[in-house]
Write a protein that binds this DNA or RNA. Structure first.
Lengths: 138, 138
DNA sequence: ATTATTGCAAAGACTTTGCAACTCC
DNA sequence: GGAGTTGCAAAGTCTTTGCAATAAT
């Protein structure tokens, strides 16, 4: 995602294109590691030394509300953010705080087929997320 | 799980059987609703008016460490607790903070079979958790 | 008797809010 | 120009920590 795309994506949502917003969205895309608010702030502060964490949080909320990024929940309760908006799952390292995206259309399809046949009584499914916990091996 | 069982389960882990611990473990089992630390505290305070939240948190940590309960992560970042230790998944209500257990051995087996065949390169799976998001219908 | 646990108060981590100054459209 | 956004400081929420008093084995 290029700089121009980032500005476009903000504008498409009728969001004012500010340096803080472009920097934050760009950071999440570039870091590509499900960063925390804190690490986004640290990264941005190299170019925008004056950005405040309040702004980071406000912008993150705005981006989530507008469907430009997603929150990723963690065991520790610290929120992390992800610019990948397509349906995908997550690999969680059981030894560290590493989280990687895991895309697998076949798996998504298998689950959709399964739940199309086997309904859950009293429940209407919107989305399914897999948390795959394990170890990254070299 | 009866009172005697709760005391036994604590003792089996070489944990001292205190009124606070039995009350907290009993509350999680009885509430059966993935309570937060706060709602556990509120529930217990009816019988133990003096229990402190610090104790609630310490006991919850101890119970998690000893495998007697589990933490359930939520979108909001507030931790919730679950006394169900068998492998199971969760139904998350997209309109409220309701979370229900979802047990389905067939589904677990299907996923195990799938990942037995289809490995994830560079990753060794320990556990898989499904978060099924949707709406409870009456 | 020994060791672990409790409760209090205080601190900590992460996040949100109020508001005046400032920016973008 | 006007509505929306930023940054600061302060407050809020949830959770953890230190430590003396207390309770369990």
């Amino acid at each position: 995602m290029k700089d121009i795309d980032i500005r476009t994506r903000l504008a498409e949502k009728s969001l004012k294109v500010t340096p803080q917003r472009t920097a934050i969205l760009e950071a999440i895309v570039k870091l590509n590691n499900h960063p925390t608010a804190e690490s986004i702030g640290d990264h941005i502060r190299e170019l925008h030394p004056n950005i405040s964490m309040a702004t980071v949080y406000k912008v993150l909320d705005t981006l989530v509300e507008n469907g430009l990024i997603r929150k990723v929940k963690t065991e520790s309760g610290i929120m992390r953010y992800d610019a990948e908006m397509e349906s995908h799952h997550h690999l969680y390292c059981s030894d560290s705080d590493r989280i990687e995206d895991y895309k697998n259309d076949e798996l998504i399809e298998m689950l959709e087929n399964y739940f199309a046949k086997k309904r859950i009584p009293g429940f209407e499914i919107d989305d399914i997320k897999l948390q795959i916990i394990g170890k990254f091996i070299k």
